[in-house]
């Protein structure tokens, strides 16, 4: 038996913090719009490609490209909401029909991206990939930046949700829609802000994941089920749960590599999810949302 290598834990924190960001977006949209958005993975992919276009195709500095990916992805998410989800919502279509619609949207977006950029693995043009060794753990400057950016965004989301009327109204809408409406919350206004924040976070997650691995059309879809696992682990609709769940799933997946083949990473996420659903279906935080 070899002793446990802390490298796996560090990898887990890096992967987990990016999953957490995307999972917050997914859970916020679920909470406020009351449907599971299967196209959420593609929003992550769109963010990564938007930054790729700005960075590699247009030759902009990476940081500028990463920041530009946010408004581009948000604009696409809002346009898709207006064209696809809003008309259905107005007719009072339920969560299941919206979910099926989003499955279709996911395929259209994924294949659209593949048509334009092919299924090749793409990379950003950026330096800082040389790893340094700290206490026996290899880590790159880029990876440190990934964790820092994720943590800063999580703190920002916390402040938004607890210190602003907008954030409080979002939590309220997720908690009890009719009561929130009776308090004067403008439902469509909150929906718009939820897309802005959810898609914005997911775009950043896409850029960070593209930075840590590669950019490809299926990157978001491949992570969708892991994001679901994170959301369920944390309690559906609970943004803090999604943060915890994302980190926990990321760490569990990477640490599992120390014991079993890395091909089983997704299986680890699902085993955790299934066990949790059986044992504590309301999520780790137990209905704190």
């Amino acid at each position: 038996m070899v002793s446990f290598d802390p490298q796996f834990l560090v990898n887990g924190v890096i992967v987990g913090s990016t999953i957490a960001l995307a999972a917050i977006g997914l859970t916020l949209i679920f909470g406020v719009l009351d449907f599971i958005n299967f196209a959420h993975g593609e929003y992550l992919t769109l963010g990564a490609y938007a930054a790729f276009v700005a960075n590699v195709t247009l030759g902009l500095p990476f940081v500028v490209a990463a920041v530009l990916a946010i408004p581009v992805t948000v604009a696409i998410a809002l346009a898709l909401d207006r064209v696809v989800f809003y008309p259905l919502r107005r007719q009072g279509v339920g969560g299941l029909a919206l979910l099926i619609t989003s499955v279709g949207l996911s395929m259209i977006l994924r294949n659209g991206i593949e048509t334009v950029w092919t299924s090749d693995n793409l990379r950003y043009s950026i330096s800082g990939a040389e790893s340094v060794s700290v206490l026996g753990v290899r880590i790159t400057a880029v990876q440190v930046a990934i964790v820092v950016v994720s943590l800063v965004l999580m703190v920002a989301i916390h402040l938004l949700l607890t210190r602003t009327v907008l954030g409080i109204s979002m939590r309220a809408t997720a908690s009890n829609r009719s009561l929130a409406l009776s308090s004067g919350v403008n439902a469509e206004g909150i929906v718009t802000w939820t897309w802005v924040i959810g898609a914005g976070l997911t775009a950043i997650a896409g850029v960070l994941i593209g930075l840590n691995t590669v950019i490809r059309p299926s990157m978001g879809f491949g992570l969708l089920l892991v994001m679901f696992a994170a959301v369920i682990l944390g309690g559906i609709g609970d943004p803090y749960g999604a943060m915890l769940g994302g980190l926990a799933i990321g760490i569990a997946q990477e640490v599992s590599v120390a014991f079993i083949s890395s091909a089983y990473k997704p299986a680890v996420a699902f085993t955790i999810m299934v066990v949790l659903l059986l044992w504590k279906p309301e999520g780790l935080r137990g209905g704190e949302a």
């Binding site: 009327v165 409080i168 109204s169 939590r171 309220a172 908690s175 308090s183 004067g184 919350v185 704190e288």
Partner: peptide
């Protein structure tokens, strides 16, 4: 809104 504070309950909307 059960998990929100009394104060937050009032700020909604």
């Amino acid at each position: 809104f059960p998990s929100m504070t009394v104060f937050e309950n009032l700020l909604v909307g």
